[in-house]
Structure formats: structure tokens, C-alpha cells
Simulated assay, not measured.
Amino acid sequence: MIAIDSTATLKPLHEFWLAGARARLATDARGWLQADDDFLRLCLRRPELSLVAESCPAEISLHQALMASPSAAVSAEQLNAIEDGDARSNFQLFVRFRDELLAAGSLEAYYLSELRGPQVTVPPLFLDCLVATIVGHLQAGCGDAFQVRAAELLFRTQGLTLTEGRLLCADLESLEQRQSSAGLLDVLSPANAVDFFAGDPERLFALDLTHEVSNQLGHGLIFNLTLKHSGLKALAQVLAQWLTHFLGKPVKITPLQKVDDPAWSWHIGLDVQAMRLLNDLYEDRPVDSARLAQLISLFRLDLPGRYPKPIYLGLAMTAESRLKLKPQNLLLNLPAELALLG
């Protein structure tokens, strides 16, 4: 089970993760999550909305009123009375987000409504909070540390490093803090999975995104060993859960090292770099070695009974070795026949 209890040390988005993982939210007939006052209080505890020493009396009054009753009506006069322009804007955004979220009926319905529009009308942070909560809900009760760690990629930017032929990813913000304080980095393994679930804030666990490891056997021989506990396999399971949750029917996603399909007809990039790269490869445009080196993995998506051909997915890092996975891409860029966002 997910048993990370050191909530005082968790970053704000992980509070939303735990709200989903601990089944704090009710679900509707589809299994979609319904926002309640406790969820809205999580939003109000975000750094962007929390009170600070400089908060004016109007901001303090409004924040306290909303913490007591998060769904209470807020007047334009209450918002306009906030002296600081940034704070006023943040509360205006929260009220609009809250009202639209409650009107939508579920976190998932609101999330899809934002994706359907010509442009996203709320800051990406609000959508990351929704993703963290939904993903946490999907991982509730999961005892696979690799899968739980992989699920964080859907809402936390990762930093990547190539070490002894292995591609490791770690939470970027935590990684930068460790580098400044000389903290240790653990590579997640079956041996330390218990430590991962213990949630020690002093330990940072990297996920291995390597397809296979090459062992030198001497005499020029190389033995390629496929990783039994693959971060890519765990990520594929998480992505399949995510898409199944929205489609309502099971899908299968499998990591690939290459696409060897003359009938390749559809692809989806799981991030900006991967989408551009797959588009260029599909159109047979030249791609230099530096861009190809940014490709972390390919995946095959199969939708039995829903779509007759495999859909290929790509995952890539930036030139600065960063990874910002966009789970919405799996929903936005499906073939029209699936009509999830029609």
C-alpha cells in the first residue's frame, strides 16, 4: 500500500496525490472523483493562496472564510478589497476554478472540459493538482514501488542522468536540492522498496528508465540483459491505467526499443520533444543524432475492440536532460474514432 506518512515534508502536489491515494474523495458511478470541501482546502493551502506576513485584512478574512466553508459564495467586493494584485488575481483564479470544478461534477469531467476548449483557461498548476489526485487514486493500495514511483512522472518534472550505461530519472526539484546539499540518490530496487514506501524525506529514489543493460563477458562478447524491474514497464502500466480510467475500457501499453511497422498509421508524443520527433520520423524528415539521443523510449498502445491498429507512443527528454510528461496528450491525441474529446 501507499504509506508515505511524513506529510509535513511533502511537496504541495504530493498532498493531492495522497488525497487520491487514501480514498478521501467520493466517486460517481463511473468511478470518477468528486471534489469536496477537503479537496478545496488543499487548494487553499497551496503556497500561491496561503497567507503571508504581508497579507492585508481583506485577504486574511477571505482566506479564513473559505477555509471554514470552501464552497461559500465570494463577492466581487471581497476579491477587489484584496490590496496585493498578485494575491487578488490568485483568489480570482481559485474561485473560478472552484465554481467550474463543482459544476462539472467530477475532477475528470472538469479536466476533460479544459482539454476540449480552444485553450486552457486556468494555470497549469491547477491541472497538475487534478492529475496528482487522480493518479494517486489509481495507485491506491498498490504494493509495487516501481509503479508508484513511475506514477509521479505524470505530475512531477524529472531530471535525467546517464550513469554507467543506465538512464536514471529523479524528481527535478528534489534533485536540485540534493545537489546543493550533497544529499544521496538511491536507485529504486526490490531491496530498497520498503524504504521507498517509508517516505524518508532524506532519501531521493531514482527510477531506472533503461531498456536493457549490457554486460561485458570478455573476448569481445556482450550480453544484453533485459531489466526484470523496469521503470519503463512500470510507466507503461501507469499510462495504461490512466487511459483506461478515462475510456472506461482496458488498454495495453508495452515498451518498445524501435518501431518496425510498415503500416505505422498513428502516433502520440508523451511530451513536446517526442511529438516533434515522431512527426519528423513519420514524415521521413531528417533527424540528427543529437535529437535521436533525446528519445527515452517508444511504446505500443493497443485498444482491443476500439481501434484496429497499434498506436505508437514516444517519450523524450529535453536538450537539458529534463522530462515533463504530459498525460493529457494521451487523451487529446487519440484517433477521432475514439471520440474521447469530441
Score class of each variant (00 low, 15 high):
E173P: 01
L184C: 01
L235D: 01
L127W: 00
S174I: 08
G220C: 03
E108V: 10
H211N: 09
L225V: 07
N224G: 07
D171R: 15
T121E: 11
N224E: 12
L127Y: 00
S230Y: 12
L247N: 13
L130S: 03
Q241K: 04
L225F: 09
A236H: 04
P190A: 09
L107S: 15
T121R: 09
E152P: 02
G165T: 03
N224M: 10
N192H: 06
R116W: 10
E212Q: 15
V131K: 01
P123H: 13
L125C: 05
L162A: 15
L221P: 07
E108T: 08
S181D: 05
R166S: 11
V187T: 07
L217G: 11
Q139Y: 01
Q147H: 01
I222P: 01
Q179I: 13
L243P: 07
L175E: 00
V213Q: 15
D171Y: 10
E152H: 03
Q177F: 15
L207K: 15
E176R: 14
Q216E: 06
L112Q: 06
L217I: 04
D195R: 14
I134P: 04
L107Q: 11
P124W: 07
L239D: 12
Q147S: 02
N192G: 05
G199D: 09
S180H: 11
Y111T: 08
Q241S: 07
R166F: 08
V238S: 05
P124D: 05
N192E: 05
T157E: 01
A236L: 02
D144E: 11
S113F: 05
F205S: 11
F155Q: 08
G136M: 03
N192D: 03
L217W: 08
A170Q: 05
L209V: 12
S180A: 12
Q139L: 02
N192Y: 05
T133V: 13
D144L: 08
Y110T: 03
Q119E: 10
F197L: 13
R178M: 02
F197T: 13
A145R: 13
F155M: 09
L239V: 12
H219T: 06
L127G: 00
L167F: 08
G117K: 02
F205I: 10
S113A: 04
L225T: 07
F146E: 02
K228W: 10
S214N: 08
Y110C: 05
L227W: 06
N215H: 14
D200N: 09
T244K: 13
L188M: 02
L221F: 13
R116K: 15
G165K: 00
L221M: 10
T210P: 02
V135W: 05
F197P: 14
E164R: 12
I134D: 08
G159A: 02
C142A: 01
E114N: 06
L125G: 02
R166P: 14
L153N: 06
P123C: 11
Q119Y: 12
L107A: 11
C169N: 02
V238L: 02
L204H: 06
G136Q: 01
E114Y: 06
L115D: 14
E202Y: 07
